[in-house]
Design a protein around this nucleic acid. Structure first.
Lengths: 128, 128
DNA sequence: TTAGCATATAAGCATATATTTATATATTTA
DNA sequence: TAAATATATAAATATATGCTTATATGCTAA
């Protein structure tokens, strides 16, 4: 989800598209003229931006007006900041990492040893 | 720059690495144990995160301690928000787009026409 | 100074991505 | 209903990316 957003924004053409849409609702053919690139190229990038949740389409005759989802965008950034600032123990999906992190805490030069230790063992070799 | 950051974060392994480093300074071999993945795999991702500016390395004996550049990170996010919220005319690198955007303003169904218009022409066909 | 640890890098491979060209679909208008 | 417009999608291709295996480098300690 957040990953899709970053992946979508980590490409120059899409970053430009989203910046243009942040200015104004536009259709594919507007973008075609404004950016000077081919229609399929725009359509394909638009699809990725839509799947990431960054834009919405609205039919208007033959055209499809593209709208930047500003609320979604700010929400995602907020969520991401939370994700980065929360204590790791409170972040979902890092349970195993937290366990292994505790295991090697204060443990010096024993990565390999830890790797080979049994589940209930802890590292005896401590850093000063 | 901002693009490199998004590209760096738009990959699951790197997103996990950066989240772990946000918790604590770690070395490659710590990550190896904590994440349970191969050393070259980590090294390669670390390189990309470093090139994006998201982490810094500090030698400590044989190890290379990896630090999350939190200040850089928040700065980048701030800059990006600015980039997205500024009027397009004030954003560097969109001069041509702004010009073409004005040209098709209020212009209905004439994308192709605009494309073929000479520089000093403007579209006569206006939307209601 | 040799052995071992920590990391980097290179080569090879498989998959993913971005672009172009060509074609299909859907809507409007003559 | 045929032609034109707006968009989507498919196929083909070139390049990029991520991962593994193997090897090189650099530091530390015996």
């Amino acid at each position: 989800m957040i990953e899709d957003v970053f992946k979508a924004l980590g490409e120059p053409t899409r970053l430009r598209i989203i910046r243009l849409l942040a200015e104004k609702e536009l259709c594919v053919c507007d973008l075609e003229v404004i950016m000077g690139i081919s229609q399929p190229r725009i359509s394909q990038h638009v699809k990725i931006l839509r799947q990431a949740g960054l834009i919405t389409e609205r039919r208007e005759g033959q055209k499809r007006m593209l709208t930047f989802n500003r609320d979604f965008f700010t929400q995602v950034l907020d969520d991401f900041c939370l994700f980065m600032n929360l204590p790791l123990e409170e972040v979902e999906g890092f349970e195993e990492e937290v366990k292994r992190m505790k295991k090697i805490e204060g443990c010096d030069t024993c990565a390999i040893k830890v790797k080979n230790m049994r589940a209930n063992e802890t590292c005896k070799r401590r850093s000063k």
